[in-house]
Computed example of a mutant assay.
Amino acid sequence: MRNLPDCCWGKGVMILHFSFKLLVSRRKIFCRFSLNKQYRVLCHASVDTLWQKIINLADVSWHPIINQTNVPNGLVPKPGLIYQVVTRFTPIPIRIFVEQVCPRELLSVRFLAIPGIENRVTYQVESTVCGTYVSYSVTLRGWLSPFLWWVIRPYVARVAANLAHAAERVAA
């Protein structure tokens, strides 16, 4: 057996927070849905290699949902950048807004797709004694979110693992 700290034994961690509320106001019923899901995977690539894979918005070959983007090679994401992606589900382009970037730590984007759905995605990189952890967090809000979650759930579960494997292939 290897002598590793307890934090190293798990290859992936998943955290789920789900909220569903029915609100009655002025004789109308409102439905409020919120889902926060985080996937965390241990990667043996360096922080720099992993970060370069995340911020390379032109190469999303590792992403199970996104097929292509309109970002030119070499463009570094900055807050306020809006670009388009085409998903593997539909040929209709979806706009993405870069909300927050902390170099070598965090990239947060918001999908501007359909009214009734708010989709925020956060990539987070953390270096530990065990290796580099990459976290992929999805936050869905809106009345159409349960349907969207039903469609993308199997693909979202693979994003962090695919990203880690792609970074490890580059590092090898």
Rank of each mutant, 00 (worst) to 15 (best):
C43W: 05
P79K: 06
C102P: 00
F147K: 10
R95F: 00
F97V: 04
F18A: 08
L140N: 10
V129L: 14
I66V: 14
C130N: 00
G74I: 14
N162I: 04
V156G: 06
P77G: 07
S135T: 11
N56P: 13
L144M: 12
N162R: 14
P91F: 11
F20W: 00
L140H: 09
I15Y: 09
L57M: 10
H63V: 07
C8Q: 13
G74A: 13
I96E: 06
R158D: 10
L107V: 00
N36H: 07
R88K: 06
A166P: 08
V156I: 12
S61R: 14
H17F: 00
P91E: 08
R2E: 15
R158W: 05
T132Q: 04
A45R: 01
R110P: 00
S19F: 04
V125W: 07
R153F: 11
G131M: 12
I15A: 12
C130Y: 02
S46R: 12
R158S: 05
W9P: 06
W62D: 03
T122Q: 01
S46M: 03
Q68E: 11
V159R: 06
F30G: 02
E99V: 02
R32Q: 10
D6K: 14
D6T: 15
L144E: 01
L163F: 08
L106F: 01
S135W: 00
P115G: 14
G80A: 05
P103V: 09
S127A: 11
S137M: 05
F30E: 04
V138G: 05
I82C: 04
V138Q: 10
G131F: 09
W149F: 09
Y39N: 06
V76M: 05
Y136W: 01
I92M: 13
S61G: 13
I82D: 04
L140K: 09
R88W: 08
L81S: 03
F20M: 02
N119L: 07
A171K: 10
L75K: 15
S25Y: 08
A45M: 08
E126L: 11
W62K: 07
Q124M: 12
V138M: 02
V47L: 13
S145P: 07
V71C: 08
I54N: 09
A58N: 15
N70A: 04
W62V: 03
S46N: 12
E118L: 11
V86E: 02
Y155P: 07
F97K: 09
E168V: 11
Y123M: 01
Q84R: 06
F97Y: 13
W51F: 12
Q52T: 04
T132V: 14
I54S: 10
L140P: 11
R158Y: 04
W149N: 09
V170S: 14
I96H: 00
C7T: 15
R141W: 04
L140W: 05
F89E: 11
R95Q: 09
L50A: 03
L22G: 12
R104I: 01
V129A: 12
N67A: 10
W150V: 01
P64Q: 02
V98H: 02
V85D: 04
P77C: 04
D59F: 00
C7W: 10
Q68R: 14
C31F: 14
V101E: 03
P103M: 03
V109S: 05
L75A: 07
C31N: 13
W9G: 13
G142M: 03
H17S: 03
Y39E: 04
A113E: 12
G10I: 09
L75R: 13
F30Q: 06
